[in-house]
Design a protein around this nucleic acid. Structure first.
Length: 402
RNA sequence: UCCGGGGUAGCUCAACUGGCAGAUGCGCUCGGCUGUUAACCGAGAGGUUGUGGGUUCGAGUCCCACCCCCGGAG
């Protein structure tokens, strides 16, 4: 399979150092990069309507093969207008392949697995078997047995009709040893080829395919993986897998990996999206990011804010916000900040009113969008370095981009 | 006024015949969350058992008096 501009084209319109501003043309419209991709894992950006998501400025969301194949099923979705029609979203969609879930089901969340602690217990017996052919697993919904392979993943993603499909991969655990990671990465490369073979025969004409670079934290494996993905002729390249035990290592692994990638294809960083990670990632040449952070934190009472010393977030539910008449973040253009007080959001959030969840989700998505849109402006204007420094020093996106 | 029921953690409630004052939920404080099984998960704090006496080795529990709340009667 060769990269096909008819499915997807990516044009870099400006560079500033390693940072790039680009334009991704998909079957469902253009996507300006760098961009953040909100998660619509189960066919919905939790709590929001499609118009609200696009109204914020988002041009692409991410859906998940794993969840959607279990419920309501990809064939049903195909019969109801594909994922676009089914969820009422007429912009671009990228679908994850389900590979990551093999990892998360068996080992719990990324943070829990990396830190070796017991967080939410992994699904007992969730993964039945991981073999050369694919992965047998048990549905978290009804316990029924299912099988996911490169071919099946591509088949499901074809039925969903996403604009960008991700190849089926295995996300090796942080604590896996070198040999396991090496064998897993090689198998992921064989899976990559099987995905492309399947897609080349029966894949939707308008669907692009992104490869995924694995290799854990090992530079030589990352190099092999980057070369394998680049040689396969995919439409874009995603960086996945274990990125390390902390931000420092994660940034090192990502930067090293980016340096191994060809310049032309779009580069997507999977699963990363805290505010500082976005500007740092953009600075080293990442074009797009998807992440649960803005939406999940919003549901958990956290507001994104220009607070480097507090990991760019604060807990709205804490009592000190109970009587704050000002907005969540001064100057923020989001509806939650323009129209409501922090005290109101604090109250709603504690009262478990759905509106509180919605306001925080909207705020966090606007904040992330402002951050990335500001970065793009700065790149085009040739002053991204100053923008990044201002953000990291605690400037709000709308201040840093002035 | 009389009869009955009841006062235990901020709230709602346990504690068999007297034997280390507890739980669940909520609330509270703190921590966590990065290709979403997550409007979630985890930890912690919190007490003169209404008041004052008495019996007993030992009282939330039994006895006496008082205070307060609820229901019923008048």
């Amino acid at each position: 399979m060769r990269h096909d501009p008819a499915r997807l084209s990516f044009e870099i319109v400006a560079r500033d150092g390693d940072a790039r501003a680009g334009l991704l043309r998909t079957s469902h419209g253009p996507v300006e990069t760098p961009c953040f991709v909100p998660l619509a894992t189960r066919g919905s950006v939790k709590g929001l309507l499609p118009d609200e998501v696009s109204g914020i400025g988002y041009e692409i969301v991410l859906g998940n093969t794993y969840h959607l194949m279990l419920a309501p099923g990809s064939e049903r979705i195909a019969g109801l207008g594909g994922l676009h029609g089914f969820m009422g979203w007429d912009r671009a969609i990228i679908t994850d392949s389900g590979g990551f879930q093999v990892f998360s089901l068996a080992f719990g969340s990324v943070a829990d697995e990396v830190k070796g602690r017991r967080g939410r217990p992994p699904l007992e017996g969730g993964v039945l078997d991981v073999g050369e052919d694919g992965v047998a697993f048990r549905s978290y919904i009804d316990g029924s047995e299912h099988f996911l392979s490169p071919e099946r993943s591509m088949e499901v993603q074809a039925a969903l009709g996403s604009d960008i499909a991700l190849v089926f991969d295995e996300c090796t655990p942080f604590r896996a040893d070198y040999d396991y990671t090496a064998r897993s990465t090689e198998r992921t490369h064989r899976w990559l080829q099987r995905c492309l073979d399947w897609h080349g025969v029966g894949g939707p004409a308008g669907q692009a395919v992104f490869g995924i670079v694995q290799g854990g934290t090992h530079e030589d494996l990352r190099r092999q993986s980057a070369a394998a993905v680049a040689a396969a002729g995919v439409d874009g390249i995603a960086i996945g897998g274990t990125l390390g035990k902390d931000k420092e290592q994660m940034r090192g692994v990502v930067a090293t990996t980016v340096g191994m990638l060809p310049a032309d294809p779009a580069r997507h960083l999977l699963g990363i999206g805290e505010p500082d990670d976005l500007v740092e990632g953009i600075g080293i040449g990442i074009d797009s990011f998807d992440c649960a952070v803005p939406t999940r934190l919003g549901r958990h009472g956290m507001a994104l804010a220009p607070l480097p010393e507090r990991r760019f977030r604060y807990d709205v539910r804490k009592r000190r916000n109970a009587e704050e008449p000002g907005p969540l973040v001064p100057g923020c253009p989001c509806p939650a900040c323009v129209r409501f007080s922090r005290a109101y959001v604090h109250y709603l959030s504690r009262a478990e009113e759905l509106t509180g969840v919605r306001l925080l989700t909207i705020h966090n998505l606007v904040y992330s969008r402002e951050l990335v849109a500001g970065a793009r402006e700065a790149i085009v204007a040739g002053r991204f370095g100053g923008y990044r420094d201002a953000i990291m020093a605690g400037a709000a996106p709308w201040e840093a981009s002035v």
